[in-house]
């Protein structure tokens, strides 16, 4: 599954955009200007990117509370996302969703989700629609090790298998369900082990390695598009920040994150691999770094300058009539 130079550049830009978006939010949230909670995806970029690189307009994704990376991967506008997180009227959801309910149906991004385990039933619905309509589309649910224990996740795995849906379940196991270690709280050894109980393949991949994720994701998407049914993929990865911004992280080891950043960072690994293989140059990647930095600077600046929703907008977009 060789990647063209353009695809490699796209993958790097996607990962870098997610990283810069999250690093900047970490700084900005501390100023108190951002309402609500934010849960940062920094460190996990290879997962969203490895999967979303295989998706197109036919496909839909369901995300979780840590949804910025998935949103950027699926093509949501970065300026509109930042404005949404700042609660501005020009945000992706009119400023009413914020970080945890950010969505853009026009991009196939069905929403971050404040309900742990809430995304997988939505993905099943989208996959069922794709199957019934014959679009060739697939649906992906991104969820964590904590959500992997939820009843909704089990029900969705079951339904997807019974109906042979083009649905992919991605467990982003970052080792902690909020503050509880997955080694304690997940009764099986790997969340992927649960797949066999639902008659579908389940595999574990290194979620810090874009190329490992991309390869496994490609096979799962191909399987789904060919009508062969659902797949469960567990990405073993780490988050660089707390469960939420403000989390003191007393449950993590001293220097744990520092060591992770120094040894297995997905962006560093990507850069090292593509430059040593002579596929991309440091200069080409540096250009992307500069462009992404400017993009994020601009998005924050614009978000801060944008007006809040007017009081008259209080009830618009909240309810929908079918």
């Amino acid at each position: 599954m060789p990647l063209s130079k353009d695809e490699l550049l796209k993958a790097y830009r996607m990962m870098k955009t997610i990283r810069e978006f999250e690093e900047r939010l970490h700084v900005e949230f501390a100023t108190g200007e951002i309402p609500g909670f934010v849960h940062l995806y920094a460190g996990e970029e290879a997962s969203a990117t490895g999967f979303c690189m295989h998706l197109d307009d036919r496909d839909k994704i369901a995300s979780n509370h840590r949804g910025h990376g998935h949103s950027i991967g699926k093509g949501c506008d970065v300026d509109a996302m930042m404005a949404e997180i700042y609660g501005r009227g020009n945000g992706l959801c009119g400023g009413k969703g914020g970080s945890m309910h950010i969505a853009d149906l026009s991009k196939g991004m069905m929403g971050a989700n404040g309900i742990v385990g809430g995304g997988s039933p939505l993905a099943c619905g989208a996959a069922l629609a794709a199957k019934q309509l014959g679009t060739g589309g697939v649906a992906i649910s991104f969820f964590g090790d904590g959500a992997s224990n939820q009843g909704t996740s089990m029900e969705s795995l079951n339904l997807a298998s019974v109906w042979n849906l083009p649905c992919i379940f991605v467990v982003e196991n970052n080792g902690y369900a909020e503050a509880t270690s997955s080694k304690y709280s997940v009764a099986c050894d790997d969340a992927a082990d649960r797949a066999s109980a639902f008659n579908m393949p389940g595999v574990v991949v290194d979620g810090h390695d874009f190329f490992a994720v991309y390869e496994a994701a490609g096979e799962a998407v191909k399987r789904a598009r060919e009508g062969k049914g659902p797949t469960l993929i567990e990405c073993k990865l780490n988050r660089y920040y707390g469960h939420f911004e403000g989390d003191a992280q007393t449950y993590r080891g001293k220097d744990e994150v520092k060591n992770l950043r120094a040894t297995i960072d997905c962006l560093d690994r990507f850069r090292a691999k593509v430059t040593s293989a002579d596929l991309l140059s440091e200069a080409e990647l540096d250009v992307i770094d500069g462009e992404v930095a400017a993009l994020i600077d601009g998005s924050v600046e614009k978000a801060k300058a944008a007006p809040m929703p007017a009081p008259a907008e209080l009830l618009t977009d909240v309810y929908i009539s079918y």
Partner: peptide
């Protein structure tokens, strides 16, 4: 080895799962 028996061959082939239990 706790990791043996979890790789992509469960997806691209019909390799068996060997649980830790």
């Amino acid at each position: 080895n706790p990791a043996a028996g979890r790789d992509i061959r469960r997806l691209v082939a019909q390799a068996s799962v060997f649980p830790i239990a």
